[in-house]
Design a protein around this nucleic acid. Structure first.
Length: 291
DNA sequence: TACCAGGATGCTA
DNA sequence: TAGCATCATGGT
């Protein structure tokens, strides 16, 4: 077991932040997280966090997974400021400050990139509980049996089952995307470490070259798997927030285009270059609990 | 019943 | 290049 005292770490909020779909609360208050073919149980009481794994496994995988080497205190301070409240958030931006206070324990996870590709292909036009169910079902069918749980399926397992292999899992029109991406990943998929060394732009282009991955999904993979924490996925919730909190009613909502939302992001969050994606995650998670 | 969900694709003008 | 219809399925 590895025990740590941590500021800016809230396992429950990470679990419910919409970036991870295989993280579950247990009846005893502990939390279990699955990533690729690994599994970890952890217990958090206040700042005290116990990770139930060997020190070797923690150092090799979970420490980076939870992004523990990054200084989150500095990013929170930049937005909230000191105790006098003089932060970089625009004067009057109560929404951002409230979102930051709510989400300051959220970490941007460095998840398995292949798992992120398939998970966020599934995520399109689906609600989060439904995404979880689909990923569970996919893992049960194609994932390696690890005794009392299933690993996330490999590209080989999905591709070798053929185009009809993914039927019957409530995936709908995403079936073709998943199968074709699995086949393409076998042919030209790159190791995670190679992708993490790319520029943000190159990584986005690489992800968008797979069937079923567009700008939004590519940004999610970049942010939640590849460590590009300036990525800013724009989904329906983010559009709602941007229009309601920042557009000032200048344009009717149905006239808003993607470039209008991008402009709002630049105007209101551009000065947080270096961790814009964390700001995105704060406001997204805050919006989820307010609804 | 009608509408919506952490959207992407392919066709049309 | 931009705008639009279409794509399954489950949940509210």
């Amino acid at each position: 077991m590895v025990s740590m005292e941590m500021e800016y770490f809230d396992a429950e909020k990470i679990m419910n932040s919409g970036q991870v779909f295989r993280m579950y609360g247990n009846d005893d208050g502990s939390i279990t997280v699955y990533s690729g073919d690994r599994r970890l149980r952890l217990v958090q009481k206040g700042k005290q966090v116990d990770f139930f794994c060997t020190e070797k496994e923690f150092e090799e995988y979970w420490k980076h997974y939870f992004d523990l080497d990054r200084d989150y205190a500095e990013m929170v301070r930049t937005v909230l400021g000191d105790e006098a409240g003089i932060g970089e958030a625009k004067k009057g931006d109560g929404f951002l400050k409230a979102a930051c206070r709510y989400g300051s324990g959220i970490r941007l996870l460095n998840q398995d990139i292949w798992e992120m590709m398939i998970s966020f292909i599934i995520s399109q036009q689906k609600q989060i509980p439904s995404i979880r169910k689909c990923i569970e079902a996919l893992s049960r069918r194609f994932g390696e049996n690890k005794g009392d749980y299933y690993a996330f399926p490999s590209a080989e397992a999905i591709a070798s089952a053929g185009p009809d292999g993914v039927k019957g899992l409530s995936l709908g029109y995403r079936e073709r995307y998943i199968y074709e991406t699995a086949v393409a990943y076998l042919e030209r998929g790159l190791p995670d470490e190679e992708i993490r060394k790319m520029s943000f732009e190159d990584a986005r282009k690489y992800f968008c070259s797979f069937c079923g991955i567009g700008e939004k999904v590519a940004n999610c993979i970049c942010l939640f798997g590849a460590g590009f924490i300036d990525a800013f996925p724009i989904d329906v919730h983010i559009k709602d927030i941007l229009y309601r909190e920042y557009a000032g009613g200048s344009i009717p909502e149905e006239k808003m285009r993607l470039c209008d939302y991008q402009l709002l992001i630049e105007e209101n969050f551009g000065r947080f270059a270096g961790f814009k994606g964390l700001v995105q995650q704060w406001i997204f998670a805050y919006e989820l609990v307010r609804k």
